[in-house]
């Protein structure tokens, strides 16, 4: 009885607000076609997918694809690269925007602050293709860095071709690109802190550094926790474009990550089932990590994203 009442009211709602339902239609269609259909399509990870047979007629193989990738020695090298870069990204990349927001907060002059922000947000709007090209020039034999080295009598280094330099270049360039943009969230959180707290601190004789350490930072912690949890969920999502653009044949041994591997063997060579299994492994790994960190955070601080 209750269920029928509810259903009836939905139909009534639909009749009364027909326009609203029509308005969601294109968007819903988009999410179904480009988000949910591919999600369901992930089942080909459990198939021996053949393009001419399609999803429905391809034979099921159970966990064979997963067993294959876990027995494949290259997989561990690539997973290792991905984990290594992902870990370094969080270790160095995550604190950068927080520090930047704290620094920007110390700029009193509004005009100057706005100018700074314009410059700091700028790299976020450039594609990796462009940033990659600029980096290749800056780090080339004729580039600025090597000009400085030769001016000091040191031998030039081919940075982009050196395996040792790959991870630092990836980390530094992504900090360079996203630091300013990611700081927005923290700046917004800082803007929400009550000025009375600072006034009280000034009365007590606290310096700007002490105010930042004992007022701003602790009040930023909830935002930091949420951002951290979201970041951890994307631990293995390093972003294909950056790595693809910065990788050279000489750095492939350390630079090949899950995403570039999937592109190479999936998109280019058509090993669809195996690479989907890798993709699925990546998604599940991210999800598990996020759930784990979330419950850990709830246990420790009482805060989580859900």
């Amino acid at each position: 009885m209750v269920a029928r009442q509810k259903r009836e009211s939905i139909w009534g709602n639909m009749r009364r607000h027909k326009a609203l339902y029509w308005m969601t239609l294109p968007g819903m269609l988009y999410f179904i076609l480009f988000k949910y259909v591919p999600l369901l399509g992930s089942v080909i990870a459990f198939q021996d997918y053949q393009i001419f047979k399609g999803l429905l007629k391809s034979p099921w193989v159970g966990l064979e694809n997963f067993i294959y990738i876990f027995q494949y020695p290259d997989f561990y090298r690539i997973l290792g690269n991905t984990v290594k870069i992902g870990f370094a990204q969080i270790l160095y990349g995550f604190p950068a925007p927080i520090l930047l927001a704290l620094l920007l907060n110390e700029v009193g002059n509004r005009k100057l602050k706005r100018c700074m922000q314009t410059v700091l947000y700028l790299p976020h709007f450039l594609s990796w293709a462009i940033i990659g090209s600029i980096l290749f020039d800056l780090l080339s034999l004729n580039g600025v860095v090597n000009s400085v080295r030769t001016a000091f009598g040191m031998d030039p280094i081919l940075y982009m071709q050196k395996a040792d330099c790959f991870v630092p270049i990836v980390i530094l360039s992504s900090i360079w690109k996203e630091m300013g943009w990611s700081a927005i969230v923290y700046l917004a959180a800082i803007a929400g802190i009550s000025p009375e707290l600072y006034e009280a601190a000034v009365v007590e004789g606290a310096s700007r550094l002490k105010q930042a350490l004992y007022i701003t930072f602790p009040l930023l912690l909830p935002t930091i926790t949420v951002m951290f949890l979201l970041r951890v969920g994307n631990f293995l999502n390093l972003g294909f474009e950056q790595i693809y653009v910065l990788m050279t044949p000489m750095t492939q041994s350390v630079g090949d990550i899950l995403d570039t591997y999937v592109y190479q063997y999936g998109v280019l060579e058509g090993k669809y089932s195996m690479t989907t299994a890798i993709g699925l492994f990546k998604s599940i790994f991210g999800l598990v990590l996020m759930v784990l960190c979330n419950s850990l955070s709830k246990y420790a601080t009482g805060r989580g994203v859900y």
Partner: peptide, 20 residues
């Protein structure tokens, strides 16, 4: 919820490629 779920559960690249 239907929309936000797509942010949590992201489809792998290959099924997306095959859909397109």
């Amino acid at each position: 919820i239907f929309v936000l779920l797509t942010m949590v559960f992201q489809a792998p690249v290959i099924p997306f490629f095959l859909t397109v």
